[in-house]
Amino acid sequence: KRSRYYQALLDIDLLQKGQPYDLLPPTFIIFICVFDFFEQGNYVYTFKKCCLENLELELPDEATTMILNTKGTHGDISKDIKSFYDYVNNHIVTTDFTKQIDDEISYLKLDTKVRREFMLMEARLLDERREGEAVGIAKGKEIGLVEGEAIGLAKEKLATAKRLFSMGLSVQDIAKATSLPIEQVEALQAEQT
């Protein structure tokens, strides 16, 4: 779903208000993963929309999502991509391509404006994560309270049923009075005797 979200953000930013959608350029969403999300061993997973009734029929929306698996073991990739994977996994510079990447990263780390923006982004992400956790905890407490009330109510009904048995009421009357299923009241009666 993150891929879909990024695609939507891209598409919204690519058109000005009132522009026709046919001005949308081809887009690529690329994820670099240091784990094999699909556990198939591919170096690259490329996704385009296709028709389920005819898998050879592709929707020509020019949107592509690629997942680069740095832990992949098979598939055709270029020497530069392989060296990029080695760089991501082990921070090893083996080609001019990874040397350029390493130089750019070193430069960006020294750039105080970029560092500040990165730190602000990390802080925003941390805030969002904390907000999400707080919402999750609140929701969990709410569910727990509802479940706790249901358990408490069930125990209360059983206690009432036991008292009504001691007063000599019938199974049917106890079931009506407590809203318990007759089967449960009969099982309780069997326990009592």
Score class of each variant (00 low, 15 high):
S3P: 02
Y6M: 10
D11P: 00
D11M: 12
L15A: 02
Q16F: 12
Q16S: 15
L23T: 07
L24C: 03
P25V: 12
I32W: 14
C33A: 14
C33L: 15
V34F: 02
D36K: 05
F38H: 11
E39Q: 14
G41R: 09
N42C: 13
Y43H: 12
V44M: 09
V44T: 09
Y45Q: 08
T46H: 10
C50S: 12
L52S: 08
E53M: 10
E53N: 07
N54C: 05
N54L: 11
L55V: 14
P60S: 05
E62P: 00
L68Q: 04
N69H: 08
G75S: 09
K79L: 14
I81V: 11
K82A: 06
K82C: 11
Y85D: 04
V88Y: 10
V88N: 03
T94D: 08
T95S: 06
T98M: 09
Q100F: 14
Q100I: 13
I101A: 06
E104F: 03
I105M: 03
S106E: 14
K109P: 00
L110V: 11
K113N: 13
R116T: 14
L120C: 04
M121P: 00
M121H: 13
L126I: 13
E128L: 12
R129L: 15
A138D: 03
A138V: 12
K139R: 07
K141H: 09
E142R: 05
E147D: 07
A150T: 04
A150P: 03
I151V: 11
A154F: 00
K155V: 03
K162N: 05
M167G: 08
V171D: 05
K176S: 14
K176R: 15
A177Y: 01
A177C: 07
P181W: 03
E186H: 02
E191T: 03
Q192G: 10
